[in-house]
Amino acid sequence: MMMPNTEITKDMFAPADIDHSVSEKIGRRSVSVWKDALRRFVQNKGALISMILLTIIIVAALVSPHFSKYGIDDQDLNRVNLPPKITALSWIPLFSGKEGGVDVYKQNGIKQDFWFGTDSLGRDLWTRTWSGTQISLFIALIAALVDLFIGVVYGGISGYFGTTVDNILQRIVEVIMGIPNLVWIILLILVMKPGLFAITVAILATNWVTMSRIVRGEMMKLKNQEFVLASRTLGASNGRIIFRHLIPNSLGMIIVNTMFSVPNAIFFEAFLSFIGLGIRQPQASLGSLINTGYQQLQIHPYQTLYPGLIISLLLICFNIMGDGLRDAFDPKLRR
């Protein structure tokens, strides 16, 4: 009537064949939570770069010590405090083997290259730095395992069974949480002999608490949700509910929290080694290397440079990856 549009012809007013089920269809392809998280994680450039850097550091830590013929404690007073030298890269000042314009290698008549230099006892810093990195990575592994096994199980039991069990378990956690980590760890390490074993025990004793709190909270939240109640109504056993419903649904949270507790543990090891409560000579940890390096900081800054660089990279990468995972699993938190 009011549309002088030639396109509209009489026959267009015939009833249309419209498949009404089409409008019921959900436009987008459904994506599983995991695929969705993976997609978001891969889109996050920072997290991806961090993951690649971490992989490089891990491979380097495992392989590098074999590239040097010097062991972790091969001392030689003929080659003390040599600056880093890589002949192929000697045009870069950092790898020229010169310090204050003097070629220390020539001065001492040293033929081989020390890629990260040597310390005041003539030990190869390349070997020592990467061995130290190995220790940090070992600590990372321990922290993750402690989180996953002790933290998840403790929190899971506490949250799933609730009532008396929960009450007792939570009082214990409260006492542990009320005392700073530092105090626990120092007491534990003093009672034992300082060293890798003592640090491992200290992490075993303290690192799982945060995780257990988080898992407990998740369990409490999930166990009263409809899908769990439905499963229970249908006669599912406790084990089935825990392993088929509760754990898969809190897995994202567990992974994210593990990613955050790992750098924490790495930091604590380095910190303890730095103040002399951790790895002891002649073994090397990034923390103890930095501490030794600081005594020479004003004269030979390169001795601190590499351990400091590697631990910083390690911690930054773990944190960025943790952020990336958190955003991937819970995009609401990104904003």
């Binding site: 900081l297 601190t304 400091g308 930054i316």
Partner: peptide
């Protein structure tokens, strides 16, 4: 992220080297 990640003993070293040893602005 950098501030949270890098331990304070590294920052201390960097600051000390940069602003007390290299450029002598502050006491070592």
């Amino acid at each position: 992220v950098i501030g949270i990640s890098i331990p304070s003993f590294i920052f201390a070293g960097i600051l000390q080297y940069a602003f007390a040893v290299n450029v002598q602005l502050f006491p070592v």
